[in-house]
């Protein structure tokens, strides 16, 4: 029983991070219909910036995260301007290849600046909390709470503000959005900023319990793709739900089924889903 609760909590922790990363991916997909393969690299850069700010800059963990959000958000916007904006009328293959180019560059850059070594991120929240017979680290609690707060804020932003509403409008109907005079450029840049910020938050939160290294984004981005296919490409609630579904399946699967192949769970899940429903689970019918 204790093991089960412990694993459920682990699932909640992992799922929170997955959801944050998948949210950025799904927002970008919703607006521009680009599967941004470079999103995992943003995640990785987010972790390194936070780490550097703490270790070299001497900033507090939370302040380092804020800096990381800004840096990664700006890199993300830059990517939209320099790479995806010029490609807006191109074929899908061009989008994918361009994104892969950015991914390779950012990884090599990280490798160049920070080296290939696995690094540990310190955290001021390493304390252990005991509730009944269960132990939780503050860091894990911080992950879950922060992620939920961020998601609520994002939700309020998308639903309650005019700017947020333009993002939703554009993802639902691009032509329509142009017609009512939405500035597509601004919306695209904003969306990329949010996506980058979410990746930075996700990476900075999870790094103290994982490790920081140049290819740390690979698996995460693959899983984020699986999540948004499960949840429906472009769907915000779908990304959140999908993130937690995957988080729980992994933590439970690793404990009760096969720990060696835990990373396979996501892909097997995806292969099954796309085999049965080639357009994704929540694809809009017809065309």
């Amino acid at each position: 029983m204790e093991l089960l609760i412990q694993q459920l909590f682990n699932g909640l922790t992992i799922g929170s991070v997955y959801s944050l990363v998948a949210l950025g991916l799904t927002l970008v997909y919703g607006i521009l219909h680009i599967p941004n393969f470079a999103h995992g690299a943003l995640y990785m850069v987010g972790a390194y910036v936070t780490l550097t700010m703490m270790v070299q800059g001497g900033f507090h963990y939370l302040l380092a995260i804020v800096i990381s959000i800004l840096v990664v958000g700006l890199i993300s916007v830059l990517m939209e301007r320099v790479v995806f904006h010029p490609l807006r009328d191109s074929t899908p293959i061009q989008h994918k290849v361009a994104a892969i180019g950015v991914l390779l560059f950012l990884e090599a850059l990280a490798h160049y600046i920070w080296g290939a070594d696995y690094q540990q991120m310190p955290t001021p929240y390493g304390q252990v909390v005991k509730v009944f017979d269960l132990t939780f680290t503050m860091q894990r609690i911080l992950i879950v709470v922060t992620a939920i707060v961020v998601m609520i804020l994002l939700y309020l932003f998308l639903k309650k503000t005019y700017t947020g509403a333009t993002i939703i409008a554009m993802s639902q109907n691009r032509e329509g959005a142009y017609l009512v005079g939405i500035n597509a450029n601004k919306v695209a840049m904003l969306t990329f900023f949010i996506a980058g910020a979410l990746a930075a938050i996700g990476a900075s939160l999870t790094s103290p319990i994982n490790l920081v290294f140049p290819s740390m984004g690979h698996l995460v981005i693959l899983k984020a793709f699986v999540i948004i296919i499960i949840g429906g490409m472009g769907s915000v609630p779908g990304a959140i739900l999908g993130g937690y579904i995957l988080g729980f399946s992994e933590s439970l699967g690793a404990t009760y089924l096969f720990s060696d192949y835990k990373d396979l769970i996501a892909f097997v899940l995806l292969v099954i889903i796309l085999t049965v429903k080639p357009q994704g689970i929540f694809a809009k019918g017809g065309v």
């Binding site: 994918k96 693959l222 490409m233 396979l264 996501a266 892909f267 995806l270 292969v271 796309l274």
Partner: peptide, 24 residues
């Protein structure tokens, strides 16, 4: 046979995952 039921981005993501499974 299975992968080609998907198109465009789905195909790319699907094959990305297939490639990863083969590697694993």
């Amino acid at each position: 046979l299975v992968a080609l039921r998907t198109k465009e981005h789905f195909f790319a993501i699907y094959t990305l995952c297939v490639g990863y499974i083969i590697y694993l």
